[in-house]
């Protein structure tokens, strides 16, 4: 596969390491009320869609950026690639 890196352009997926569902960005606060259940769901419950999936890839043999790749799991078509840091900030994550 080819991943169109937002900074570096098209790069072979061989350079990347796959992690999984981009929802891993949304880590619950471990000190909040109900953290045990929230973290359990965060770590163990995942959708496995046949179709569009937002997922995390790490450009290990490149610039070490984590990317959020929107990929169709049936066709491998990639429709969007974003820097995970930008996605995280857009979701309100900060410090």
């Amino acid at each position: 596969m080819i991943i169109n890196h937002p900074l570096l352009g098209p790069r072979d997926a061989q350079e990347f390491v796959y992690l999984g569902d981009a929802r891993l960005i949304e880590r619950p606060d471990g000190l909040a009320e109900g953290a045990a259940q929230a973290l359990h769901d965060h770590v163990f419950l995942r959708d496995n869609p046949a179709g569009e999936h937002r997922e995390l890839w790490f450009h290990e043999q490149g610039d070490r950026s984590w990317l959020v790749v929107t990929r169709n799991t049936l066709t491998h078509e990639i429709t969007r690639v974003e820097l995970a840091r930008d996605v995280a900030r857009a979701k309100g994550r900060s410090k």
Binding site: L24, R27, L56, R93, S94
Partner: peptide, 19 residues
């Protein structure tokens, strides 16, 4: 060494991007 570095980058970029 490699997986830990990858994990730390994940924490830095995806969990706490403004640290």
């Amino acid at each position: 060494a490699v997986p830990v570095f990858r994990h730390l980058e994940f924490c830095r970029q995806c969990l706490w991007p403004d640290m």
